[in-house]
Design a protein around this nucleic acid. Structure first.
Lengths: 114, 114
DNA sequence: TTACTATATAATAATTTACTTATATATTCA
DNA sequence: TGAATATATAAGTAAATTATTATATAGTAA
């Protein structure tokens, strides 16, 4: 894989953003599948406002985008962002989070939403 | 290059550590050459205690190591750390900081120390 | 020894962060 | 329409972060 260059200012900003376990895991999960807010609430067992605030930070930086589907708002990686290749590269070094999704599905957390 | 795996906990910790422009730049510089504290003070135009505290965080995490040489204490990347391959991989995506070292040398900041 | 230099640590202050609870907004559905 | 659900935002708070100034420590050199 080709290394993706990034200026120091932006790189530090992204690392800071991803330097939080919740946000880092969110982004890794979004690399595998889109998710709505209530799914993250279930996965992280954290209050809904807290989840929303983390997602806002990721969205403000352009790392993720949102798309309303009826009652739900789905988040996904923003593939159009200039940051996308850099973020992608980082995510490749992180362990698969498929287990979290499987468990969510097992507990019915996926069906209720999507 | 092979991607280096890292568990989420540790990855988030490293990103947080590198999510500060000063520390990120320090580590990138150390990837090019060892430096002593007074050189960083000169490069970043920041107080000596502030530089020392950033270096302490990097050292506490095992990212850098120190070695006293007479009056000076030289910092370098800790190649023995389990984090080293991961950090190295991140650094490869960042722009060369050779200019900062050249400028330091031009201003005599390098000669006084080393 | 004394003075000087390089560095670390302590104490502190301003700012930022990551939660919480309460409330507002938007959509669906009876 | 009104109730229920999903999400966002606001306000408040405790803890963490990053700088500062003041001081301690360790080495060098007169």
């Amino acid at each position: 894989m080709e290394a993706v260059a990034m200026d120091m200012e932006k790189a530090a900003m992204i690392f800071k953003l991803l330097g939080d376990k919740t946000r880092l895991t969110m982004v890794k999960i979004l690399d595998e599948t889109d998710c709505c807010v209530c799914e993250f609430v279930e996965i992280f067992r954290m209050s809904q406002p807290s989840i929303s605030q983390h997602l806002r930070k990721l969205r403000d930086a352009g790392v993720v985008k949102e798309e309303r589907k009826g009652q739900w708002i789905f988040y996904s990686l923003n593939q159009v962002s200039e940051l996308y290749p850099f973020v992608r590269q980082i995510l490749q070094t992180l362990p698969d989070q498929g287990e979290k999704l499987k468990e969510l599905e097992k507990n019915g957390g996926r069906i209720a939403c999507c």
